[in-house]
Nucleic acid binder design. Structure first.
Lengths: 147, 147
DNA sequence: GTATAAATAAAAATAACTTTCATTTACATG
DNA sequence: CATGTAAATGAAAGTTATTTTTATTTATAC
């Protein structure tokens, strides 16, 4: 992501294009694994000279609220983040072994909201969907190990 | 749930049928909202005389591991639990307003594992799916409020 | 009944976040 | 370009859900 592009996204959200925010975005764009707040912090504070961990938390939270980045669910219940170029409705296939995230468009839930509405009488507002497993590479590696 | 039924489930899992475990199970069965560990704790400690909160956490964790109960995802990232009579593969429709949980069988993801496998080369092992919104009752209430 | 491994209590510890408030900075405006 | 202002950040302290530890108790197999 070009810096100017990042600045544009931030301004559209009504957020100031600060060096810290741009650095957090730059850290996540192009990263193919999900990262925790302190991992982002460790990666960018070298380049920035200094940045507080609470600032990183705040920025990640803002970006997630604004849907610029996504939260990834993990069994350890810590917060993880991932930025996906895909702006359409999509979900993530997450590797349990190497943390790689791959997006996929097939949601499979198109009709579900209607079905739930008509069967329960309620109203569907959102859904969480995340598929986990082993990415191609880790899947291969595991087969080798099993040999 | 009959107590003897609970004891049977526990023994099948290789767990001792202790009063605390039975009480936790009894608390959750028949409950239609999801509960946190300390909510369960507050409900059962009256009846048990005394029980430590760590014990409740441990029991809930064991039961969740064993799939006797399910974890419910919430925006506050705390742990919530729900026991569903439904033993088949199913998911939950969770009310954002009153915490009610309704299960539904339609998964919609039957073909997804195969599609992901063939498009990425990886292997799907599990998935998280939770639908959120307003249950029938809260949906009605909200409409009334809006009037 | 008794031995034994499993379960629990109680207290302390952990760690992931959050809050607070004083200082700095982006940027709209003149 | 200078400058006022709200927004952003740093630093330190605080919060709180959850976990760990270790000594004691208890379910259950024999």
């Amino acid at each position: 992501m070009e810096r100017e592009q990042g600045a544009l996204i931030l301004r559209r959200l009504g957020l100031k294009a600060t060096p810290r925010r741009l650095e957090v975005m730059q850290c996540l764009v192009g990263e193919r694994m999900y990262l925790s707040a302190d991992e982002v912090w460790n990666r960018i504070r070298v380049r920035l000279g200094s940045i507080g961990l609470p600032t990183v938390y705040r920025i990640l939270d803002e970006l997630a609220e604004a849907r610029v980045i996504t939260r990834i669910f993990s069994a350890d219940r810590k917060q993880y983040f991932f930025m996906c170029a895909n702006q359409e409705h999509h979900h993530h296939f997450v590797c349990d072994s190497c943390r790689r995230v791959v997006d996929f468009a097939q949601c499979g839930l198109e009709g579900l909201a209607g079905e739930i509405a008509s069967s329960t009488g309620g109203r569907v507002l959102s859904h969480i969907l995340q598929v986990n497993g082993l990415c191609a590479e880790c899947s291969r590696t595991e087969s080798e190990v099993a040999r």
